[in-house]
Simulated assay, not measured.
Amino acid sequence: MYVYALLRADAEPIVLPPGWQAPLVVIKVGALAAIAEPGLTADGLPTAEAPLIQAVLHHDRVVCEIFEQTTVLPLRFGCCFVSEASLRQYLQTQAALHLQQLDALTGLAEYTIKLKPITPPVNEPELPSTIGGRQYFLAKKQRYQTLQQQQAQQQGERQALLSAIGQTFPYVLPDTEAEAVHTVHILASRTPSDWQAIWQTWQDQCPHWQLSYEGPLPPYHFAPGGRRDLGMRIEQ
């Protein structure tokens, strides 16, 4: 039995999206419930790259559609239980913890902020061929110093932005840097009234960075297990 997410059992009637192979069901035990797909196991998930990507996208789509209707704890891709009985036992034994987490996440959503450095212009005119000797090396040195100053200013803007994010939102998770793109995950109101004003201020303060964000999203990085692990397989 494949499980997509946990939610409160007393949530409003949920409109269930299609499953990967079979219709989804809501398994309720006391005050806690799970969105599950009977018959789907870890061995039944694709292993080839293209079908695996489609399965991951389907998992996220299900979680997002449920999240649009109520508060959820999204589970990692590949989370399976060997039977409905084992899932029910888990819901019973872990109810207090997960209900507390659901209460803490009520009304909140995850926003993913990405910072990509704006590359300094590279189309500067070549140094005149008539410049030689000491003048040439002084001109090259000046260009190098200018680039260093731009990079220092760029890093200063980044640090100031990360500080501002931390002061504005109490729940912040900086991600690892990948290919010079810095990613930050924050937990904030699903409908922040002043978000656009805050976002415009950040953009104005970071002229050397290209800023973008996704959200509101399910709290992937703030739910049990933390970050999405796209290759994870769990049998319980």
Results as ranks from 00 to 15, higher is better:
Leu6Glu: 06
Leu6Phe: 13
Leu7Thr: 08
Glu12Gly: 13
Ile14Asp: 02
Ile14Val: 13
Leu16Pro: 08
Pro17Tyr: 02
Pro18Asp: 13
Gly19Ala: 03
Gly19Asp: 09
Trp20Val: 00
Ala22Leu: 07
Val25Lys: 14
Val26Cys: 13
Ile27Thr: 14
Ala36Asp: 08
Glu37Lys: 00
Thr41Ala: 02
Asp43Val: 00
Leu45Val: 00
Leu45Ile: 00
Pro46Trp: 00
Pro46Cys: 03
Ala48Glu: 12
Pro51Ala: 03
Leu52Asp: 03
Leu52Tyr: 03
Ile53Glu: 13
Ala55Gln: 04
Leu57Phe: 07
His59Gly: 11
Asp60Tyr: 09
Arg61Asn: 13
Val62Phe: 05
Glu65Gly: 06
Glu65Trp: 08
Ile66Pro: 10
Ile66Glu: 05
Phe67Ser: 04
Phe67Glu: 03
Glu68Thr: 06
Thr71Ile: 07
Thr71Gln: 11
Val72His: 05
Leu73Phe: 12
Leu75Lys: 01
Leu75Pro: 10
Arg76Thr: 08
Cys79Leu: 06
Cys80Ser: 04
Ser83Cys: 02
Glu84Val: 03
Ala85Phe: 10
Ser86Val: 07
Arg88Phe: 01
Gln92Cys: 07
Thr93Val: 15
Ala95Lys: 05
Ala96Tyr: 01
Leu99His: 04
Leu99Asn: 11
Gln101Lys: 09
Leu102Tyr: 05
Leu105Tyr: 07
Leu105Thr: 08
Leu108Tyr: 09
Leu108Arg: 14
Tyr111Ser: 04
Lys114Gln: 14
Thr119Leu: 14
Asn123Ser: 12
Pro125Arg: 13
Glu126Pro: 03
Pro128His: 04
Ser129Arg: 07
Gly133Ala: 08
Ala139Ser: 06
Lys141Gly: 02
Lys141Tyr: 06
Gln142Cys: 02
Gln142Val: 05
Tyr144Glu: 14
Gln145Asp: 14
Gln145Phe: 10
Thr146Ile: 00
Leu147Asp: 11
Gln149Tyr: 07
Gln151Gly: 00
Gln151Ser: 01
Ala152Asn: 07
Gln154Ala: 05
Gln155Pro: 02
Glu157Val: 09
Arg158Leu: 15
Gln159Ile: 10
Gln159Trp: 02
Ala160Glu: 03
Ile165Leu: 13
Ile165His: 08
Gln167Met: 11
Thr168Ile: 09
Thr168Arg: 15
Phe169His: 15
Pro170Lys: 05
Tyr171Ala: 15
Tyr171Leu: 14
Leu173Asp: 04
Pro174His: 04
Asp175His: 12
Ala178Tyr: 10
Glu179Phe: 12
Glu179Arg: 13
Glu179Ile: 11
His185Glu: 14
His185Leu: 06
Ile186Val: 15
Ser189Glu: 12
Arg190Leu: 08
Thr191Gly: 03
Thr191Ser: 14
Pro192Thr: 11
Asp194Ala: 14
Trp195Leu: 13
Trp195Glu: 07
Ile198Thr: 12
Trp202Leu: 10
Asp204Cys: 06
Pro207Phe: 12
His208Ser: 13
His208Met: 09
Trp209Thr: 06
Gln210Thr: 10
Gln210Pro: 01
His221Asn: 15
His221Ala: 12
Pro224Ile: 02
Pro224Met: 11
Gly226Val: 09
Gly226Asp: 04
Arg228Ala: 10
Gly231Val: 02
Met232Leu: 13
Arg233Leu: 07
Arg233Phe: 01
Arg233His: 02
Ile234Arg: 12
Gln236Asp: 11
Gln236Glu: 13
